[in-house]
Design a protein around this nucleic acid. Structure first.
Lengths: 228, 228
DNA sequence: TAGATGGTTCGGCCAAGATCGAACCATGAA
DNA sequence: TTCATGGTTCGATCTTGGCCGAACCATCTA
């Protein structure tokens, strides 16, 4: 009965307040230093250092040393997805925070999920792209169609550069708040980056919330409806 | 930074040896009594009872009292899927058991995932059904086609009875060992049940392993290739 | 070179929680 | 009714591991 991968170590690592704070933070920003993370989780640098070492050893994080800084990030997109799954279960079983944050509605509306757009807006984008056949469900995963490519190019996203990266190009990702899919993978990341670059929305400091400007929101809707 | 669902409670619950054993066991069998689970996890009944109460309160399990027995099971298919995700990460980050079980190859070959077939065989079934257009990826999830329905009926599976159940009818589920999808949902469960009923394979006692008889394996391949 | 800052290591403190035996309640069988 | 068995509750024990301050190393700046 004790066969299979050992889920205990991973779950136990995530099941600690400070480490969960660290992981959640890294789900938003791409990379952070040890002191940043220590402040964020309200622990001393010593404690944070210990936690980071453990997470590192378990393969949940990676580091990159730059000068005297060490930048930590999630090891893998899969880790981010696991965290989202956990949030999904936590959300549905009602394990919300004791003092449920006033920012929660905004978080449900639009947020960053690792590096792509999630929440109500993320799901709407995904649905719209599929409905207009820009994205097509294929054999194994998603495929960007001819007309879909055109639309992403219109937005100023260089698809060729994306495709030759190692990471998967486009992929659905389950949204914890909506219980439906949104767009992940390189394409999802590029889309979010472009939306921010165009000034359609901006990221909240110190949180995963994405705030759309009214005209940015309008522009996004325009782009979506252009395909139908 | 501390917005969103509280993943700590859920992860901490899973991140304990005994509780993880319990949850893993429940992923295999549909429902078990408290004493069975206690023996399985090598803990006293008292300890098990405490754990079960916690898991229950968190919404990870449900109970059903029958006479003087209390049958515990996973609350939800989502819980099973979360556990599979965890196994996926644990597997890939190399967090295998210290004394890796000799049964592991068999487990990777064919096992039960909650109530449906997983592992190499499960993935092959799924691929084959999709390739022959029995299963078709649609708007939101999977759909069983006309010819697909016919093939399941041939096997002696009552589709009408399945469809009117509450749970989702057919759904892809990510396989931790293969990193590809296999068939879940009511249809996946019915398929596994039928395979066992026909004597094509049988379940290992006290583990998630499914052992195919040579002729059962042959019959399954026959059924799969009938659609092409 | 000296000082400031980022980060890790060490030692000791302390609380959380996993564990068990024993007592206890409920149900079913004799 | 009496006994056996499934299951929970209680109290006590003890280990695990999170936490910090202080000392220390590394890197950058002046």
């Amino acid at each position: 009965m004790k066969d299979g991968p050992n889920i205990v170590v991973i779950a136990a690592l995530i099941g600690d307040h400070s480490r969960a704070d660290i992981l959640t933070a890294l789900m938003a920003d791409r990379a952070m230093t040890a002191t940043e993370l220590a402040n964020l989780a309200n622990i001393s640098k010593a404690t944070a250092s210990g936690h980071l070492a453990k997470l590192l050893e378990a393969g949940l994080l990676t580091v990159e040393a730059q000068g005297r800084h060490r930048y930590y990030r999630l090891a893998d997109e899969d880790i981010a997805q696991l965290l989202e799954s956990l949030m999904g279960v936590a959300f549905r079983t009602g394990a919300v925070r004791l003092r449920s944050s006033p920012r929660e509605p905004a978080l449900r509306y639009a947020r960053v999920c690792y590096d792509h757009l999630a929440g109500e807006v993320g799901v709407r984008v995904y649905d719209s792209l599929k409905r207009s056949d820009a994205l097509i469900a294929a054999e194994d995963g998603l495929v960007l169609s001819e007309c879909g490519s055109k639309r992403f190019l219109q937005l100023g996203i260089d698809l060729d550069k994306l495709r030759c990266r190692h990471r998967s190009f486009c992929r659905p990702c389950l949204d914890w708040s909506e219980r439906r899919h949104h767009l992940a993978g390189g394409l999802g990341a590029a889309l979010l980056a472009r939306v921010l670059e165009l000034g359609w929305a901006k990221r909240d400091k110190d949180s995963r919330i994405i705030r759309f400007h009214p005209q940015g929101h309008h522009a996004l809707e325009q782009w979506l409806s252009a395909g139908t």
